[in-house]
């Protein structure tokens, strides 16, 4: 029993994330006993309890493609944008996006099969793809990224499965297993790049807590899907993870057994760095 409890504790962030992700998928796909669904639509625009939510990135593409501002959608865009702006953009990636389930599975398979080969991709590719998708929306008058966006494709596949759609999802899975570590979410996907820019100043952050608590085991860095965001904290050059790329997945917190890291809401202005906690030798 203890062991089970400890296991849950060691994976508390992971389990919380999985529960939220599955609940969101279920809200769209599992019919309520009274008929209908908890949430209507899909992740590009949905209605929850009568409140419309709209993805700002897809809305932006639509705007550039030449569509007038949809008033109803505009309100939904504002709600979503403010939420991620305040807390941190890539919360979307690790807590909401269903593709995270696919790519996390890839990562798990990669670890299990001990695949070390890694085709190095620049993290800037996704920013380039983001810019291109906006430019192409402007040029072609259609929603460029929506022609391939696997997020809504995933949801459509759950409703009306198709061979073509399943192949796209399978190719993302295999890309992450065989080609590049954390390839899709960490390097390619422009949705992540968009939310990263949007939530650059997000206030929910991973914090280095106690003086001298870090044992220097580096497990957090190993498990982090965006390891560069932790680097300044580990190198004791910052107390908070401030990069917009941090997905707030909490994998580092699950790994950290010393309590040196914590997730904190900090509304304080990012003050000057005053030096960190010296760490005990190892």
């Amino acid at each position: 029993m203890r062991q089970l409890q400890a296991m849950f504790f060691r994976n508390r962030w992971l389990f919380s994330r999985r529960i939220i992700q599955l609940l969101i998928i279920a809200a769209f796909t599992v019919e309520l006993p009274a008929g209908g669904y908890l949430a209507q639509g899909n992740l590009s625009s949905s209605v929850w309890f009568g409140i419309g939510l709209t993805d700002p990135y897809i809305w932006l593409q639509s705007l550039l493609a030449g569509a007038p501002l949809g008033k109803a959608a505009l309100f939904g865009v504002a709600i979503v944008a403010v939420f991620y702006l305040l807390l941190g953009g890539r919360i979307y990636c690790s807590w909401v996006c269903p593709i995270n389930l696919v790519t996390d599975l890839s990562y798990w398979v990669r670890q299990k099969l001990n695949i070390k080969s890694n085709f190095t991709l620049s993290k800037n590719i996704r920013v380039t793809i983001l810019m291109l998708s906006l430019l192409l929306s402007l040029l072609s008058g259609t929603l460029a990224w929506e022609a391939i966006n696997p997020i809504t494709l995933f949801q459509r596949e759950l409703m009306w499965g198709s061979v073509a759609g399943a192949t796209v999802l399978a190719s993302i899975f295999l890309f992450d297993v065989l080609v590049t570590r954390r390839g899709w979410c960490g390097h390619v996907c422009p949705v992540g790049a968009f939310y990263s820019e949007l939530g650059r100043e997000g206030r929910l952050r991973v914090k280095a807590t106690q003086v001298g608590a870090c044992g220097g085991c580096a497990k957090c860095i190993k498990v982090c899907p965006e390891p560069h965001v932790l680097a300044p904290v580990i190198a004791k050059k910052a107390t908070f993870v401030t990069s917009g790329d941090c997905t707030r997945c909490g994998a580092c917190l699950d790994q950290c057994s010393t309590g040196a890291l914590a997730m904190r809401l900090s509304f304080k202005k990012q003050g000057k760095f005053k030096g960190i906690p010296v760490v005990g030798g190892h």
Partner: peptide, 17 residues
């Protein structure tokens, strides 16, 4: 059609309605 293609955000709310 061209305007529809730009304005539709592919959410499927009409489908469920």
């Amino acid at each position: 059609e061209p305007e529809f293609n730009a304005a539709c955000i592919r959410c499927g709310l009409c489908v469920e309605a």
